[in-house]
Protein backbone atom coordinates (compact mmCIF):
# COMPACT_ATOMS: atom_id res chain seq x y z
CA UNK A 1 0.00 0.00 0.00
CA UNK A 2 2.75 2.36 1.02
CA UNK A 3 4.68 1.38 -2.08
CA UNK A 4 1.70 2.15 -4.26
CA UNK A 5 1.29 5.55 -2.63
CA UNK A 6 4.94 6.39 -3.13
CA UNK A 7 4.75 5.25 -6.72
CA UNK A 8 1.63 7.34 -7.29
CA UNK A 9 3.18 10.47 -5.83
CA UNK A 10 6.37 9.88 -7.81
CA UNK A 11 4.37 9.75 -11.03
CA UNK A 12 2.52 12.93 -10.12
CA UNK A 13 5.80 14.63 -9.31
CA UNK A 14 7.39 13.56 -12.57
CA UNK A 15 4.34 14.73 -14.53
CA UNK A 16 4.46 18.05 -12.74
CA UNK A 17 8.13 18.54 -13.50
CA UNK A 18 7.55 17.66 -17.15
CA UNK A 19 4.66 20.06 -17.37
CA UNK A 20 6.75 22.80 -15.81
CA UNK A 21 9.62 22.17 -18.23
CA UNK A 22 7.27 22.17 -21.18
CA UNK A 23 5.66 25.40 -20.08
CA UNK A 24 8.97 27.17 -19.49
CA UNK A 25 10.35 25.87 -22.78
CA UNK A 26 7.29 27.13 -24.65
CA UNK A 27 7.51 30.59 -23.13
CA UNK A 28 11.23 30.77 -23.92
CA UNK A 29 10.48 29.56 -27.39
CA UNK A 30 7.90 32.27 -27.86
CA UNK A 31 10.10 35.05 -26.51
CA UNK A 32 12.97 34.00 -28.82
CA UNK A 33 10.80 33.63 -31.92
CA UNK A 34 12.06 36.12 -34.52
CA UNK A 35 8.71 35.98 -36.28
CA UNK A 36 6.17 36.66 -33.55
CA UNK A 37 2.64 35.60 -34.36
CA UNK A 38 1.32 38.44 -32.20
CA UNK A 39 2.46 40.98 -34.79
CA UNK A 40 0.57 39.18 -37.53
CA UNK A 41 -2.50 38.86 -35.32
CA UNK A 42 -2.49 42.58 -34.71
CA UNK A 43 -1.63 43.84 -38.18
CA UNK A 44 -3.65 41.43 -40.28
CA UNK A 45 -7.14 42.49 -41.27
CA UNK A 46 -9.82 41.12 -39.01
CA UNK A 47 -13.09 39.67 -40.22
CA UNK A 48 -14.95 42.92 -39.64
CA UNK A 49 -12.42 44.76 -41.79
CA UNK A 50 -12.80 42.70 -44.93
CA UNK A 51 -15.83 42.69 -47.24
CA UNK A 52 -18.45 40.02 -46.73
CA UNK A 53 -17.52 36.88 -48.61
CA UNK A 54 -13.82 37.46 -48.05
CA UNK A 55 -11.86 35.32 -45.68
CA UNK A 56 -8.30 34.34 -45.00
CA UNK A 57 -7.25 32.04 -47.82
CA UNK A 58 -6.60 28.49 -46.77
CA UNK A 59 -5.96 26.93 -50.17
CA UNK A 60 -2.47 25.47 -50.03
CA UNK A 61 -2.07 25.95 -53.77
CA UNK A 62 -2.71 29.69 -53.51
CA UNK A 63 -0.51 29.99 -50.43
CA UNK A 64 2.29 28.22 -52.22
CA UNK A 65 2.03 30.64 -55.14
CA UNK A 66 2.51 33.48 -52.71
CA UNK A 67 5.38 31.73 -50.96
CA UNK A 68 3.52 31.22 -47.69
CA UNK A 69 3.32 28.22 -45.39
CA UNK A 70 0.33 29.60 -43.57
CA UNK A 71 -1.86 32.68 -43.79
CA UNK A 72 -0.91 35.27 -42.68
CA UNK A 73 2.78 34.54 -42.63
CA UNK A 74 6.15 36.17 -42.79
CA UNK A 75 8.10 36.03 -46.01
CA UNK A 76 10.91 33.59 -45.43
CA UNK A 77 11.89 32.42 -48.88
CA UNK A 78 15.43 33.41 -49.69
CA UNK A 79 14.51 35.23 -52.88
CA UNK A 80 11.81 37.26 -51.10
CA UNK A 81 14.13 38.08 -48.20
CA UNK A 82 16.89 39.14 -50.57
CA UNK A 83 14.53 41.48 -52.35
CA UNK A 84 13.31 43.00 -49.09
CA UNK A 85 16.85 43.47 -47.82
CA UNK A 86 17.92 45.12 -51.07
CA UNK A 87 15.13 47.58 -50.49
CA UNK A 88 16.37 48.18 -46.93
CA UNK A 89 13.50 46.36 -45.29
CA UNK A 90 14.04 44.20 -42.20
CA UNK A 91 10.99 41.93 -42.28
CA UNK A 92 7.84 41.43 -44.32
CA UNK A 93 4.60 39.50 -44.16
CA UNK A 94 1.68 38.75 -46.40
CA UNK A 95 -1.98 38.06 -45.73
CA UNK A 96 -4.27 36.80 -48.48
CA UNK A 97 -7.99 37.35 -48.55
CA UNK A 98 -10.71 36.17 -50.87
CA UNK A 99 -12.34 32.88 -51.61
CA UNK A 100 -10.56 29.56 -51.95
CA UNK A 101 -10.66 29.99 -55.72
CA UNK A 102 -8.94 33.32 -55.95
CA UNK A 103 -7.05 35.88 -53.93
CA UNK A 104 -9.04 39.09 -54.20
CA UNK A 105 -7.11 41.19 -51.73
CA UNK A 106 -3.62 41.07 -50.39
CA UNK A 107 -2.05 42.78 -47.40
CA UNK A 108 1.69 43.26 -47.44
CA UNK A 109 3.51 44.59 -44.41
CA UNK A 110 7.14 45.63 -44.54
CA UNK A 111 9.16 46.71 -41.52
CA UNK A 112 11.88 49.33 -41.74
CA UNK A 113 14.25 50.44 -39.04
CA UNK A 114 14.92 53.81 -40.64
CA UNK A 115 12.25 56.29 -41.72
CA UNK A 116 14.08 57.31 -44.90
CA UNK A 117 14.05 53.70 -46.11
CA UNK A 118 10.36 53.41 -45.37
CA UNK A 119 9.56 56.61 -47.21
CA UNK A 120 11.66 55.52 -50.16
CA UNK A 121 9.83 52.20 -50.36
CA UNK A 122 6.47 53.95 -50.16
CA UNK A 123 7.54 56.36 -52.87
CA UNK A 124 8.59 53.53 -55.17
CA UNK A 125 5.38 51.61 -54.47
CA UNK A 126 3.47 54.75 -55.32
CA UNK A 127 5.02 54.82 -58.79
CA UNK A 128 3.60 51.39 -59.68
CA UNK A 129 0.34 51.47 -61.59
CA UNK A 130 -1.51 49.20 -59.20
CA UNK A 131 -4.64 49.41 -57.07
CA UNK A 132 -2.87 49.82 -53.77
CA UNK A 133 -3.54 51.74 -50.59
CA UNK A 134 -0.62 52.45 -48.31
CA UNK A 135 -0.54 53.07 -44.58
CA UNK A 136 2.14 53.64 -42.04
CA UNK A 137 2.40 52.58 -38.43
CA UNK A 138 5.25 53.93 -36.37
CA UNK A 139 6.69 51.89 -33.54
CA UNK A 140 9.50 52.52 -31.08
CA UNK A 141 11.86 50.31 -33.07
CA UNK A 142 10.88 51.25 -36.60
CA UNK A 143 8.09 51.69 -39.07
CA UNK A 144 5.62 49.22 -40.49
CA UNK A 145 4.34 50.03 -43.93
CA UNK A 146 1.09 48.30 -44.78
CA UNK A 147 -0.10 47.99 -48.36
CA UNK A 148 -3.46 46.60 -49.32
CA UNK A 149 -3.83 45.69 -52.96
CA UNK A 150 -6.42 44.30 -55.32
CA UNK A 151 -5.66 41.90 -58.15
CA UNK A 152 -5.24 43.86 -61.40
CA UNK A 153 -6.41 40.83 -63.35
CA UNK A 154 -9.78 40.70 -61.61
CA UNK A 155 -12.77 42.99 -61.89
CA UNK A 156 -14.13 44.84 -58.88
CA UNK A 157 -17.44 46.65 -59.08
CA UNK A 158 -18.17 49.90 -57.27
CA UNK A 159 -20.01 48.15 -54.45
CA UNK A 160 -17.15 45.79 -53.76
CA UNK A 161 -14.58 48.59 -53.80
CA UNK A 162 -16.80 50.57 -51.46
CA UNK A 163 -16.97 47.66 -49.03
CA UNK A 164 -13.21 47.25 -49.21
CA UNK A 165 -12.72 50.93 -48.42
CA UNK A 166 -15.19 50.77 -45.56
CA UNK A 167 -13.30 47.87 -44.03
CA UNK A 168 -10.01 49.67 -44.44
CA UNK A 169 -11.38 52.69 -42.63
CA UNK A 170 -12.14 50.47 -39.66
CA UNK A 171 -8.68 48.93 -39.98
CA UNK A 172 -7.06 52.35 -40.07
CA UNK A 173 -8.93 53.47 -36.98
CA UNK A 174 -8.18 50.29 -35.06
CA UNK A 175 -4.44 50.55 -35.60
CA UNK A 176 -4.28 54.37 -35.75
CA UNK A 177 -2.52 54.22 -39.09
CA UNK A 178 -1.23 57.20 -41.02
CA UNK A 179 -2.31 57.23 -44.66
CA UNK A 180 0.44 57.29 -47.30
CA UNK A 181 -1.37 57.13 -50.60
CA UNK A 182 -4.52 55.78 -52.16
CA UNK A 183 -4.29 54.37 -55.65
CA UNK A 184 -7.29 52.16 -55.19
CA UNK A 185 -9.76 54.94 -55.65
CA UNK A 186 -7.26 56.99 -57.68
CA UNK A 187 -6.99 59.61 -54.95
CA UNK A 188 -3.45 60.25 -53.75
CA UNK A 189 -2.98 61.13 -50.14
CA UNK A 190 0.49 62.08 -48.96
Amino acid sequence: MQRKTIFKWALILIAGVMLYKFASFSSQDVSLNPFPASVLDELALQQAEVPPGYKLITSSNLLMQAGLAQNPDYLTRRADLEDIIQMDGAAAFLALYGSDEAVRMMLKGVFFRKPQHALKYAEVQGTRHRQVIGFRRDTTSGIWLLFIACDPDLTYDEAELHRIMQGLEVYQRRLTLLPLFDQMTADHVE
Partner: peptide, 21 residues
Protein backbone atom coordinates in the same frame (compact mmCIF):
# COMPACT_ATOMS: atom_id res chain seq x y z
CA UNK B 1 13.23 34.14 -65.80
CA UNK B 2 14.35 33.78 -62.24
CA UNK B 3 11.78 33.68 -59.52
CA UNK B 4 13.06 36.60 -57.54
CA UNK B 5 9.63 37.47 -56.42
CA UNK B 6 6.54 35.34 -56.27
CA UNK B 7 4.55 36.03 -59.40
CA UNK B 8 1.44 36.71 -57.34
CA UNK B 9 2.91 39.51 -55.26
CA UNK B 10 4.52 40.94 -58.39
CA UNK B 11 1.10 41.02 -60.04
CA UNK B 12 -0.56 42.75 -57.09
CA UNK B 13 2.17 45.26 -56.22
CA UNK B 14 4.37 45.56 -59.29
CA UNK B 15 8.10 45.06 -59.55
CA UNK B 16 9.68 47.29 -56.93
CA UNK B 17 13.19 45.89 -56.90
CA UNK B 18 13.93 46.95 -60.46
CA UNK B 19 12.70 50.43 -59.61
CA UNK B 20 15.21 50.51 -56.76
CA UNK B 21 18.06 49.22 -58.83
Amino acid sequence: EEDHEAEMTGRFYGNLLTAYQ
